[in-house]
């Protein structure tokens, strides 16, 4: 009996081994190497390994670097809040007001632009927001403005590009949450004399909060780590943390500094995770 169990276990270990080895070799090991790298030092063009806290100290003392973190945090928070505020009503309308048989269609339409390439989507916003873009041409044609608005290459453009992406994502997650609610809760509240608003405020909203927080957390993680959108839409007016990381790599091949900044980025994400861990149900997305 024991030997049967042992061969079974060996067989199972054989099944799981390839995946495990892949993750250890190409995820855990690189991550460990990167932590080591973050404590190395760049002297001239060569990397000196050791245990120097220089990179971390420099990051927190040099305003041009540290500002990347505050810019990233500000943009991410603004984007997360706006996206939730825009997506919730849409998800609610699709779940509660659109006839059931059209809901799937409405949802698919709401996320259709997901299927354009991410890089192309940011580029498309450039066409809309640029100096000669659709918005400026339209507003000038209508005589609303005389000079084109400078929207591209500003934080506003970055935020718009991000919000566009995350409204789609959040509509999906919040909708999935809303349709799981039994209509009986709302009915019961109404029977007890609650107004529509009170029902929403005290019944629907609290029940969907875990879904909202999960979506918001996803938004936070994806937004703060993204390089493409701020690089294409924000230009070089103010740099986010990922842009600064790429700059370290490109300009002088400063792997130690880039590694340290990546670790800091991960630390921020981990803190955000701990902050909302109470409501998170990542397995239910």
């Amino acid at each position: 009996m024991a030997s049967i169990e042992k061969t079974e276990r060996d067989r199972a270990a054989g099944f799981v081994a390839p995946a495990l080895i892949w993750v250890l070799a190409f995820f855990v090991l690189p991550f460990a190497v990167m932590i080591g790298m973050s404590f190395a030092r760049l002297e001239g063009r060569s990397i000196v390994h050791g245990f120097f806290p220089d990179n971390y100290l420099r990051f927190f003392s040099e305003p041009s670097l540290f500002k990347g973190l505050t810019v990233s945090l500000e943009i991410t928070l603004i984007v997360t809040v706006i996206s939730v505020l825009l997506a919730y009503p849409l998800a609610w309308i699709i779940a509660m007001r659109v006839p059931v048989r059209y809901q799937r269609l409405a949802l698919m339409l709401a996320v259709l632009p997901f299927w354009t390439s991410y890089v192309v989507r940011s580029y498309a916003w450039l066409l809309v927001l640029g100096q000669n873009g659709v918005i400026n041409k339209a507003l000038m044609g209508l005589g609303v403005i005389a000079e084109p608005l400078a929207i591209a290459s500003t934080r506003t453009a970055t935020v718009i590009g991000f919000v566009h992406f995350f409204v789609m994502l959040l509509t999906l997650t919040i909708y999935a949450n809303l349709i799981q609610l039994s209509p009986n809760y709302a009915r019961a509240a109404a029977d007890l004399g609650a107004s529509a608003f009170a029902t929403f405020r005290h019944i629907i909203l609290p029940l969907t909060l875990p879904g909202v927080v999960t979506g918001a957390f996803l938004t936070f993680v994806l937004c703060i780590g993204d390089y493409i959108t701020p690089q294409i839409l924000g230009g070089n007016s103010e740099l986010t943390l990922p842009q600064l990381i790429m700059l370290q790599l490109g300009r002088r091949g400063d792997f130690p500094m880039a590694s340290a900044m990546s670790i800091i980025l991960m630390a921020v994400v981990t803190l955000a995770y701990l902050a909302c861990a109470r409501w998170l149900k990542l397995d239910r997305v």
Partner: peptide
């Protein structure tokens, strides 16, 4: 983990 960090780690290794 952000793709940027995965990419950076792999690049180093």
């Amino acid at each position: 983990v952000s793709y940027l960090i995965i990419a950076l780690g792999l690049m180093t290794v």
